[in-house]
Amino acid sequence: MGEVINVVVAFAVIVFLFRWLTTSNVSSSERSAADTLGFRPKPVSQDMIDTISNMFPDIPPDNIRYDLLRTGSVELSSNKILERGFLDPPPPAYFTLYPREANAEQAARPAQAGAATSTAVKAPKKSLIDRYNLQDRVVQPGPLISEEEVGGKAVWEDSSEKREASLKERKAQMILAARQRMLAQQQKNSSS
């Protein structure tokens, strides 16, 4: 009977030592993240999230980060989006580790920076007439240009310069015809 007790105590000591040695290698933050999420999260950088966000702008950043924490690979997450069309939303426990405020600030910074540069680069809105320099070709409201005259069927030109000139002319005709239709519609609405 004494030998059985010695074996049980020895087994308990070995199990205790084994658990103590294997859990001491993992830091407490990783342990708590693994306990919270239900898996050991892989390292994820902001570049990884940005890469997938640029490829799939309709996928929320939280979904991307959660999937990257699970897979640790941009390729696997991208393939999952391509195959399924979406990524699973993170569970509520995810937001205890990664609150939305931090993600919203990171997402807002590049968006605000992009908005600032795009507004600085863009001039005030121009009309198509101004953009394509058609001021001298603007016709006063009169009979509408027929659809055959507007686009018509293009003839394949010999050189690329002629094809480009033909395309520019067709664009100009379409813009002018659209302007005429818009003015006629405005005149019709104002008279009624």
Score class of each variant (00 low, 15 high):
Pro110Gln: 06
Ser118Gln: 14
Ser24Cys: 11
Asn103Tyr: 08
Ser73Gly: 06
Lys80Glu: 10
Lys171Cys: 15
Arg70Gly: 04
Glu164Gln: 09
Val74Lys: 05
Ala107Ser: 13
Ser73Trp: 02
Gly114Lys: 05
Arg100Lys: 13
Phe56Ala: 07
Ser24Glu: 01
Gly152Asn: 03
Ala108Ser: 10
Val4Phe: 15
Gly2Lys: 12
Gln112Lys: 12
Ser73Ile: 12
Ser32Arg: 10
Glu164Asn: 08
Pro41Asn: 01
Met1Pro: 00
Leu167Asp: 09
Ile129Phe: 08
Asp47Cys: 06
Ser24Pro: 11
Phe11Ser: 07
Ser29Tyr: 08
Lys126Pro: 00
Pro143His: 14
Val139Glu: 09
Ile129Ala: 07
Arg84Tyr: 11
Lys168Met: 15
Asp67Arg: 13
Ser27Arg: 04
Arg109Val: 05
Ser192Leu: 15
Val15Leu: 13
Ala34Phe: 04
Gly114Ser: 11
Ser29Leu: 10
Ser118Leu: 14
Ser166Glu: 03
Phe95Arg: 02
Lys171Pro: 15
Val15Cys: 08
Ile175Glu: 10
Ala123Asp: 15
Gln185Gly: 04
Glu83Gln: 06
Val26Glu: 14
Pro91Phe: 07
Val138Ser: 02
Glu101Lys: 00
Ser190Lys: 14
Pro91Gln: 08
Ile49Cys: 02
Val121Asn: 03
Arg163His: 09
Val74Met: 04
Phe16Leu: 12
Glu157Val: 01
Arg31Gln: 03
Ala123Phe: 05
Leu69Met: 10
Asp50Ala: 10
Tyr66Trp: 07
Ala12Pro: 00
Pro99Asn: 01
Gln186Cys: 03
Ala120Tyr: 14
Met182His: 06
Pro143Phe: 12
Met174Trp: 03
Glu30Gln: 09
Arg40Thr: 08
Ser32Tyr: 12
Glu83Thr: 08
Val74Pro: 07
Leu167Glu: 10
Pro60Leu: 01
Ala104Met: 12
Ile81His: 09
Gln180Glu: 02
Ser191Cys: 14
Gly114Cys: 02
Ile14Lys: 02
Ser24Tyr: 09
Ser27Pro: 02
Ala108Val: 06
Gln173Val: 15
Ser28Trp: 04
Leu17Lys: 08
Tyr132Ala: 11
Arg109Leu: 06
Pro61Gln: 01
Asn133Cys: 13
Ala172Asp: 04
Pro41Phe: 00
Ser146Lys: 13
Arg181Ala: 11
Pro141Val: 03
Ala172Gln: 02
Ala108Pro: 01
Ser160Trp: 12
Arg137Gln: 14
Ile5Ser: 13
Glu147Met: 06
Arg31Cys: 01
Asp88Gly: 07
Tyr66Asp: 07
Pro110Ile: 00
Val150Glu: 13
Ala178Gly: 06
Val7Lys: 00
Ser191Glu: 11
Val13Phe: 14
Val44Leu: 06
Ala177Phe: 04
Asp47Tyr: 06
Thr22Ser: 13
Pro60Ala: 02
Ser159His: 08
Arg100His: 04
Gln187Ala: 07
Leu167His: 09
Ala184Leu: 07
Ser160Asp: 04
Asn6Ile: 15
Gln112His: 13
